[in-house]
Simulated scan of single mutants.
Amino acid sequence: MFTNYARRRAIGALFVSMMTPPAFLRAASQERWRLYAMEDFLPYSFMAEGRFRGIDVEILDRAADALGVGLDYVPLPWRRALLAFDTSNDDALFQLTPTEERARKWLMVGPIRNTVIVPVVRADSPFTDRLRPERLYRLEDLRGRRVGVVRGFTYYEAFDRADYFIRESSIDERVSLRKLLLGRVDVAIMGRANARHVIRSLGMEKELRVLATPLFREGRYIAFHRNAIGLGRGGRLQRELDRLHADGTVAAILRRYGEGSDAG
């Protein structure tokens, strides 16, 4: 038989349980953002053990946790991801190179991380990081060359505008590197971390070289629509990304993937 004290405690517990929503309702009511990303883009975003993982995904997950936001990732081929975001009301698209056109159209938030764009050459190529026999240090050094790029990618405004080399576009980095190995291009251009992972996955470590000297460095951003919701969410994320860079969290994530702070 309940004592008065036990009865009061039981009534109190019942009251608290009625006032506190169960976990599944709390999860359902959490603010959620829908984000488009490039699929199979090691080490930045990729599926592993049934989960979407990678450097960019982990950085955004950390920021979202701090904001109390849930993220729903939609990995797609890059050109489809661009089109899907541009023609929808979904929240964001990430891994973008900043351009003036994109900044006018979307709210560009970031950078999530920096990327280092490097040349990849065949092992027997005369290109080297030293001054002899041939240098490949500057954009102008590509003059007259056949250059492997990924279709739909924006690299860097000066690179994208340049008309003094021949672009050979491919559907992805793997195809671009296979063309390089077959001699269909002289050099392939890609992010350093991505190049290392793709070369390793293809077993081409002895056939291809990643030159150490970058052609350029650039940030990678996440875009939101320029409407009230997008501006609000983008502003909140910008403040959190700034904090993650300042306190060393982004650098720590990059190191865990075996990359430096400018690794991309």
Rank of each mutant, 00 (worst) to 15 (best):
L241K: 00
P119R: 04
S169A: 14
P111I: 04
S201L: 09
F24C: 13
L139H: 02
F224Y: 05
T249Q: 05
I222V: 14
L25D: 10
G203T: 03
P126F: 04
A162I: 02
I166K: 14
V120R: 02
R7A: 14
F85D: 06
F127V: 06
M38Y: 10
Q30H: 11
G248F: 00
Y155C: 03
A162D: 07
N4V: 15
E39W: 06
T87E: 14
G230F: 08
Y156R: 13
T97P: 00
S88A: 09
V74I: 13
G234M: 07
L215Y: 07
L136G: 02
D141K: 07
R192Q: 15
P111M: 04
A23E: 12
R26N: 08
L177F: 15
R145E: 08
A92G: 09
E259C: 06
S170C: 08
R192T: 11
A64T: 07
F153G: 00
S125L: 02
D141T: 07
R209P: 02
L25F: 12
P214E: 00
Y221T: 00
R8S: 15
R220M: 12
D86L: 05
M108S: 06
G183T: 00
E205C: 02
G183L: 00
V187D: 02
A92I: 08
A37S: 15
L93F: 10
W33C: 12
F2A: 13
V250L: 01
A103D: 11
V198R: 02
R102V: 01
T3D: 11
F15Q: 14
Y156G: 07
R167P: 07
P111G: 03
A123F: 12
F46Q: 02
D129R: 04
A252N: 10
S88G: 08
I222Y: 03
H245E: 03
R80Y: 04
A158N: 09
A212V: 09
R80G: 01
R196G: 15
D242S: 12
V16D: 11
Y73W: 15
T154K: 15
H225Y: 07
R34F: 14
D129S: 11
R26H: 08
V116E: 15
L83I: 10
A37T: 15
G110Q: 04
R256L: 05
F2S: 13
M108E: 00
A251H: 05
R184L: 08
R239T: 11
V187N: 07
S261G: 10
A6D: 13
I189H: 06
Y5P: 08
R196C: 04
L180G: 03
R196V: 12
T97Q: 06
F153R: 05
R80C: 04
R239A: 14
V210Q: 01
V74K: 10
L136P: 02
A228L: 13
E58F: 00
Y156D: 14
